[in-house]
Design a protein around this nucleic acid. Structure first.
Length: 489
DNA sequence: TGTTTAC
């Protein structure tokens, strides 16, 4: 299985500034690095932490901290006076020999990536404080919480002890695959709580209670299992929200997530909560900091890594027909040998329409969206993972977390916008383009711009991230140039 | 609208 998210542990991404930042650029979604505010906390003391061995710097030299080019990519804020030492090796973490074997033999890791080096001691050191961690796409955050869960589980206790909640079925399955690989020698049991393939469907009421030690799943199924009293939570000691900003967003899974969390709190005396995502906008960040107790924070800046690894382009199109024509002539014909491509659309309907259009004209393409049955979704994902299919149309189902290293090209057939306000969805934009150029590989995104509103949307996105999407005219020559510049030709 | 949901 290819997973850059975790494979990154072998080779930490580059951490040095390659160019001086533009004037007051927005970084990392909504992280304000120009005006570091005191974290809002109820108890404990605040310490800025420098990354060289994670020495606690009580003097809070925030400016110095932010200006250090080597270490400016991660900002750590610890709560209370628990000292943490950065882990330069996995041995530093007191992991079981079985888990170490999984890391070295199965995952082929050598040493922790930067985010892992800092977050893992925070996750694994008593009193097991909660953690809000922002980590770049492909920086190895999956490893952080998967290793955290595997390490904190008592192998002798046959009961659910760790629970991970993900926004999509595909992400839950992907995370489970990482967990099983990494935990191969531990004997720790696990179960995926996602909608089942209808072929082996069995109502939860007829099933035995879950005895697996680690459960990874989606909100609906987890809720169902819990209310049916099949998923006991009294032994839970660690609760993970993957893509936490979306899991706790008003227009995301906030209600489900809070409900699950409250149910757990009722039966489990102390359950550590880990929140991981590549993006946290201010609204979500403020809310999220209220639902955890005494917590540590980790913020990774330099989303430039993501935005710079992937070349951004825009193509102005007269109408929808022109968009389809570009997909055919440029993305299929010209891009034939460019590796895998993913086309993001806004609605399920446009996914189907585009799929139909292209298929009728003889192009081979698959499309995935939430209305497709679980078994078909599995089939589509497996075909794409194996390289059997090269171009995949998707709704934002695959915008987050989907880890497929062969994706070189992302096409925004529709730009990501927020439903109510029609404002650009900056977080989704970042997540979408993060599907290309995984693990520091080359990648490009083509934004198809149709009409004034699209033009305004892309303008705002450029402004927000302080990066320009270079205009590409609709001809072979300009596209070839663009692809060459992106390092794909 | 998209992600989730099969009693």
């Amino acid at each position: 299985m290819a997973d850059a998210e975790t494979a990154t542990a072998t080779a930490a991404p580059p951490t040095t500034e390659t160019k001086p930042p533009a004037a007051e650029p927005k970084r990392w979604g909504d992280i304000e690095d120009d005006a570091p505010e005191e974290p809002t906390r109820v108890s404990g003391s605040t310490s800025e932490v420098s990354l060289d061995g994670l020495k606690i710097d009580e003097s809070k030299k925030i400016n110095k901290f932010l200006d250090e080019p080597e270490d400016s990519n991660i900002k750590a804020v610890t709560s209370g006076d628990t000292p943490y030492t950065s882990a330069s090796t996995f041995e530093d973490l007191n992991l079981s020999p079985e888990l170490l074997k999984g890391l070295y033999v199965e995952m082929k890791f050598q040493k922790p990536s930067k985010i892992q080096a800092i977050s893992l001691p925070m996750i694994l050191t008593p009193p097991y404080k909660d953690l809000i961690a922002q980590a770049h796409n492909g920086s190895g955050k999956t490893t952080c919480f998967v290793l955290g869960m595997l390490s904190r589980v008592d192998p002798k206790l046959t009961a659910p002890q760790a629970l991970c909640i993900c926004p999509t079925r595909e992400l839950a399955i992907q995370n489970m695959e990482v967990l099983r690989k990494m935990g191969k020698y531990t004997g720790i049991t696990s179960e995926c709580a996602v909608p089942m393939d209808s072929r082996d469907y069995m109502p939860i009421s007829k099933r035995a209670p879950i005895s697996a030690q680690i459960v990874i799943g989606t909100p609906g199924t987890i809720k169902k299992w819990m209310s049916a009293k099949k998923l006991g939570t009294s032994y839970l000691k660690i609760l993970v929200f993957d893509e936490a900003d979306h899991m706790l967003a008003e227009d995301g899974f906030k209600d489900d997530s809070l409900r699950i969390k409250k149910d757990i709190e009722r039966s489990s005396s102390h359950c550590q909560v880990l929140l991981f995502s590549a993006t946290f906008n201010e609204t979500v960040k403020n809310f999220v900091s209220k639902i955890v107790k005494s917590y540590n924070q980790l913020f990774v800046k330099k989303e430039e890594l993501s935005l710079e690894a992937v070349k951004q382009y825009k193509v102005y199109c007269h109408d929808e027909l022109a968009k389809i024509q570009i997909i055919k002539e440029r993305i299929f014909d010209l891009g034939e040998n460019l590796g895998q491509r993913i086309i993001f659309v806004r609605t399920r309907n446009s996914a189907s329409m585009l799929h139909k259009q292209l298929t009728e004209d003889g192009y081979t393409v698959s499309s995935i969206q939430g209305a497709i049955t679980p078994e078909d979704r599995d089939k589509l994902i497996n075909e794409f993972r194996s390289g059997l299919s090269q171009v995949l149309i998707s709704t934002d189902l695959l915008a987050r977390g989907f880890d497929q290293q062969q994706i070189n090209l992302v096409i925004n057939y529709d730009l990501p916008i927020k439903y109510e306000t029609h404002e650009p969805d900056y977080e989704v934009y970042l997540h979408r383009i993060g599907r290309a150029g995984r693990f520091g590989r080359k990648g490009a995104v083509f934004n198809l711009i149709c009409g004034d509103r699209d033009a305004e949307t892309i303008r705002k996105i450029e402004l927000y991230f302080q990066t320009e999407a270079i205009e590409v005219k609709n001809n072979d020559e300009e596209f070839e140039n663009a692809l060459r510049q992106a390092g794909l030709l």
